[in-house]
């Protein structure tokens, strides 16, 4: 296990470096002069030159990258053009935490709903197959639902029509309900489908049949015997979902005007604030890399325990 852990940890390093190079290159792949774009059309030649020096654009490319990388290691992600504040502060002061909360809340909701729907559908498969078909159709609809549309429909119902929930912001529980639902429903569908498939396979195995033959109650069989084995593949999809919910947060934050990392990305693109954009994209990708690492480790841990048992 330790060997696997270290090997997987080492595999993360080239990916993290590759991601950093990709993010660094954003600035250099933009057609035109980034200094000109960021200084604005009205900038005079001195201002332009100053901007070039600030961004380090006067150096050769490899030196620029080494500087960028060295600064990153010291926690310096550059300065936001728009606000003039360090990018690190812009990201980590509170935006990062908000997006993390949003993604965790959304994932939790999708796990809860996904497990309920998935277990119900596996349990009803043999005797009430129409219930199972219905549940799977519902989850396919959930999977096909564009989350920005769902968010707007929720606003339409709960804020505009019923006036129960605030349209924008993040912090109070009332503000959290709609963003959580918006994010959670798509994730729910994927988890429900995975749970149902995996549980159905487990339920067809011999030891389950033995338990039935011994007269054990269905509920005990599902929750005590089958779920333990059936949940293993679900762990992977939960991790993947967390990653895709991080992506989904970009849209959700825009709909509900939540000042998280996702909205920062969109605002930075609109304002052509490239240092800010690079920082935000890098943080996003690195979180994603770490989450995937944790999923692999936990998957391995669960599998290991099963083998030993």
């Amino acid at each position: 296990m330790l060997y696997f852990f270290i090997k997987r940890l080492l595999q993360m390093i080239p990916v993290a470096i590759g991601v950093t190079i990709a993010v660094f290159l954003i600035l250099h792949l933009i057609p035109g002069d980034p200094a000109r774009i960021m200084a604005g059309e009205a900038a005079n030649p001195e201002q332009l030159e100053q901007m070039r020096i600030n961004l380090g654009l006067h150096l050769p490319l490899h030196e620029q990258f080494l500087n960028y990388f060295g600064n990153l290691l010291q926690g310096d992600m550059g300065t936001s053009i728009r606000t003039g504040r360090p990018v690190v502060l812009e990201i980590f002061e509170n935006r990062f935490l908000i997006t993390l909360q949003l993604a965790i809340a959304g994932t939790s909701l999708s796990i809860l709903l996904g497990l309920i729907v998935g277990i119900l559908s596996a349990a009803t498969k043999t005797r009430y197959s129409f219930v199972e078909k219905l549940l799977m159709l519902v989850s396919l609809v959930g999977l096909s639902m564009p989350n920005f549309w769902l968010g707007i429909l929720l606003i339409q119902l709960f804020s505009v029509r019923l006036d129960w929930l605030p349209i924008i912001g993040w912090g109070t529980w009332q503000q959290m309900i709609m963003p959580m639902l918006t994010l959670g429903v798509t994730g729910m569908a994927a988890i429900a489908r995975m749970t149902s498939n995996s549980l159905t396979e487990v339920l067809a195995q011999d030891y389950i049949r033995t338990a039935y033959a011994k007269g054990v109650k269905s509920s005990v069989i599902i929750f005590r015997h089958a779920l333990k084995n059936g949940l293993i593949p679900v762990v992977t999809i939960v991790g993947l979902q967390f990653g895709s919910l991080l992506g989904g947060a970009i849209i959700t934050e825009s709909i509900f005007a939540i000042n998280g990392l996702g909205r920062l990305v969109v605002d930075a693109i609109r304002a052509q604030d490239f240092p800010l954009l690079q920082g935000a994209v890098l943080v996003y990708a690195l979180v994603f890399v770490v989450v995937n690492f944790l999923v692999d480790i936990s998957y391995r841990l669960i599998n290991k325990r099963m083998e030993l048992n």
Partner: peptide, 19 residues
């Protein structure tokens, strides 16, 4: 591929749109 997959899809698309 690992590097490309390290970005959530929409974020990668946004990055490319920026360029």
């Amino acid at each position: 591929c690992d590097i490309l997959l390290a970005f959530p899809g929409i974020l990668l698309a946004l990055g490319i749109i920026t360029i």
